[in-house]
Amino acid sequence: MSVCSSTRSFGEDVDELESVSWYHYDLSRHAAEALLLSNGVDGSFLLRNSNRGPECFALSVRAKDSVKHFNVRRQYGRYSFGFNEFSSLQDFTSHMANQPLLGSETGNLIVLRFPYPRQVEEPSIYETVCVHTAMQTGRHENDLVPNAPSLGTKEGYLVKQGAIIKNWKQRWFTLHRHELKYFKDKMFDEPIRTLDLTGCSAVQFDYSQERVNCFCMVFPERTFYLCAKSGAEADEWIKILRWKLSQIKRGR
């Protein structure tokens, strides 16, 4: 592996990179995946620092339902990307705009369509989920690692009311992308049911049950009643589920 180095001053490098609207500084690999998967579309991309060294970067690109990462290296003011080398940052960004084709390890072509700007309004839930994930891993939200749980996901125990027999049973729930799954327990691999959030019309607190910290999810065929262990936990589930619904409505 090459050691990344440069003779240019740090301040000069920062000033140059700040002119690139889709450069996200110290955004972690995991946070980049969360942004592109939750808020981007196929072909959205951004540039960020890499943990390989001070003059190493990564180009993160959303390719359908995954995010691919490509190494970019700067040395003596020149940028190396794949088999290409560019004499300036301007040449590199021009290449990204005019020849937006990348080959992945699977042999598929990835098209760079939409630069993801760093100055963009993110949904308020993003910070909450970021902090929640950091707490689950015992790390700070700015120090997430590749093996941490994905941002924009959630899991935990909820008590669910039965469909026919109106009893309440504890189930393990996992939220990923547009699917909410619940299992008999955390140790089970196969879910009892998978709820497709594209069919959900509303998520809200519910006060009709003789239980506290309840909320409901409204589907055409059924309304699901769920209870969390605390009001804060129920509020967190509601916020992230509503955010998912808003992303679905926006076609993301």
Rank of each mutant, 00 (worst) to 15 (best):
M1N: 13
S2C: 11
C4Q: 12
S5F: 07
T7C: 10
S9A: 15
S9K: 14
D15T: 13
S19R: 15
V20H: 00
S28L: 07
S28M: 06
R29F: 01
A32C: 11
A32G: 06
L35I: 04
L35F: 07
D42K: 00
F45D: 02
F45Y: 15
R48W: 10
N51Y: 01
F57Y: 14
A63K: 08
D65V: 01
S66W: 04
V67R: 11
K68A: 04
Q75N: 07
Y76D: 14
G77T: 07
G82W: 02
Q90N: 12
D91S: 07
T93I: 05
M96S: 07
M96F: 13
L101M: 10
G103W: 09
E105P: 00
E105M: 04
G107L: 02
N108E: 14
L109Q: 14
L109M: 14
L109C: 11
V111D: 03
F114V: 14
P117S: 13
R118V: 10
Q119R: 12
T128A: 13
V131M: 06
T133E: 09
G138S: 05
E141P: 07
N147I: 08
P149L: 03
P149T: 01
G156R: 00
L158D: 05
V159P: 00
Q161T: 08
A163H: 12
A163D: 12
W168Q: 10
K169H: 10
K169D: 04
L180F: 02
L180N: 00
D185L: 05
K186N: 06
E190R: 14
R193P: 04
T194Q: 11
S201I: 12
F205T: 11
S208R: 14
E210Q: 09
E221D: 15
E221I: 08
T223P: 05
L226T: 05
C227V: 09
G231F: 05
E236D: 14
E236N: 12
W237G: 04
I238N: 06
W243Q: 08
S246H: 11
Q247T: 10
Q247P: 05
R250G: 11
G251Q: 10
